[in-house]
Simulated assay, not measured.
Amino acid sequence: MTVPEYVPIMKAKKGEFDALNPIRLEQLEYKIQPVFHPLFEMPNVYEEGASRLADVTKRCEKIASLWNGNIALVDGYFWKPSEALLENGEHFLTYTYNKLFALGVKVVPVIGYDRWFDQGSNLYNQTMRGINYPNAPYFCIRLDGDAMYDIDEPDFFKEHIESIIFDLKLVETNCSILLDFGDVSVNRITIEQMLAKSTNFLEILSDYNFKYIAISGASYPSSVAEAIDDHDTDGPVLRKEMVVWQTLRKMFPNVKLTFGDHGARHPAPEKEIRNKHTNGKIIYTTDLNYYVVRGHPFSRDGGSHAHRKQLAERLINSTNYEGADFSWGDQKIFECAHGIKDFIGNPTQWVAIDTSHHIRYVLEEVKSFEIAYQR
């Protein structure tokens, strides 16, 4: 099986689902599935009194409609232990994995390092010990949070990794590692700190024979105000995770090192409440950066129609725009700027647009880097 070139951590929500519409992915110049293994983060969002089971079922069915027959990592990082059991008594992860397998998705179960060693994680441990999926393409151990501290004591960290492998009877060659830095936006962590931590991890992990090791982070901040200071201005936000991955590929040429990120979004779950003072924005992936086109509060001019059009016009008139044929998202930006089909788009549609362009750009970026590096 091909080692993936790109493992994006994607929210299992409508915006990302729309970006992964198979018809839209067909615009790529090569078959995407073998080199693109998305990690779907199952959200724990539902209205009070609503059925969690129904929500999880609906999301599983949507994933299957998009990714049937293909490989997808699936995790539930944001689910609290107290909410992990669905109305039918099953743990949501067991139900999710079983449902997706039944629907034809090649599921990669994800084991959370932090959750495994959490003192209150008995239910999580029991659930993960109980999974038995001989047809799973592989398994994944996700390192974040506490792992970032544990690596400062290499022997302690190594003992923990080996205990997960032993307890779950994992085979190294059938197990990947996801080193997820999470939020690495402005003032969170520097590139130098990310490289130092990553180097410590890789010096230990490279002694094993893991299927691959993915390095992931999220440079886009929680609000556009943190990215661009002033209303109605544009500017770059450095994608630290890409800089770190490219640097590490050169430092560790013999390690199967895969690129990962959180798409064109902040990793934290969004608030469901829409604020009338929300700023319009387009997050457009470019070489090592996000080019962010910031607008102003929608309340200022009484709506979003003219505002969205102005943002799209500013982008397509910049030197960063790749053209309408680059991706489905780029086509929609063109339509918005020129008033074609009266397309404006709501916030969810713009997540899909940003994500569509991002996926295409990153796959090309990684491919180009590998070709240049191997010369």
Results as ranks from 00 to 15, higher is better:
4 P>T: 14
331 Q>L: 11
112 G>C: 11
63 I>E: 06
297 P>W: 02
43 P>I: 00
128 M>W: 07
225 A>Q: 14
220 Y>F: 15
8 P>V: 09
29 E>H: 12
69 G>N: 04
192 E>L: 10
316 I>S: 03
157 F>K: 04
223 S>E: 10
82 S>R: 03
301 D>Y: 05
113 Y>A: 10
97 Y>L: 14
57 T>G: 06
166 F>L: 10
60 C>A: 14
262 H>F: 14
344 I>W: 00
54 A>H: 11
15 G>F: 04
261 D>K: 12
112 G>R: 09
274 R>N: 12
357 H>L: 01
216 S>Y: 04
61 E>I: 02
83 E>R: 13
77 Y>D: 10
225 A>C: 07
351 V>Q: 02
35 V>Q: 02
33 Q>Y: 11
19 A>Q: 05
92 F>Q: 14
364 E>D: 08
76 G>F: 10
344 I>D: 02
299 S>Y: 05
62 K>G: 05
324 A>D: 08
192 E>Y: 03
176 S>A: 15
282 I>D: 13
100 L>Q: 09
239 R>Q: 05
34 P>Q: 03
147 A>F: 03
129 R>A: 09
7 V>W: 00
150 D>I: 09
61 E>R: 14
199 T>M: 03
117 F>H: 08
104 G>T: 12
216 S>K: 06
169 K>M: 10
276 K>A: 12
166 F>S: 15
289 N>K: 00
142 R>A: 02
109 P>L: 04
88 N>L: 04
243 V>L: 06
64 A>L: 10
348 T>C: 01
152 D>L: 14
304 S>Y: 07
75 D>H: 03
39 L>W: 04
370 E>N: 15
120 G>S: 15
345 G>S: 01
122 N>Y: 11
255 V>M: 10
315 L>I: 05
143 L>A: 04
70 N>Q: 13
46 Y>H: 12
250 K>E: 05
253 P>K: 10
247 T>G: 01
290 Y>K: 04
324 A>C: 04
279 N>R: 13
76 G>Q: 09
41 E>T: 06
12 A>F: 02
122 N>G: 07
136 A>T: 06
62 K>Q: 13
264 A>K: 07
165 I>N: 01
339 G>E: 07
170 L>E: 11
127 T>P: 06
49 G>S: 11
323 G>Y: 02
192 E>Q: 14
55 D>E: 14
356 S>V: 03
180 D>H: 04
237 V>M: 00
210 F>C: 07
91 H>D: 15
320 N>F: 13
179 L>W: 01
92 F>D: 08
6 Y>L: 08
191 I>H: 00
15 G>R: 03
291 Y>G: 07
45 V>P: 02
10 M>Y: 01
1 M>F: 09
259 F>Q: 07
317 N>V: 05
235 G>Y: 08
330 D>A: 05
269 P>E: 15
33 Q>E: 13
57 T>S: 15
177 I>F: 01
163 S>K: 13
125 N>P: 01
30 Y>G: 06
105 V>T: 08
234 D>L: 03
87 E>T: 10
249 R>M: 08
22 P>E: 12
146 D>L: 15
132 N>Y: 12
272 E>S: 12
327 S>V: 02
31 K>E: 15
193 Q>L: 09
303 G>P: 02
46 Y>T: 12
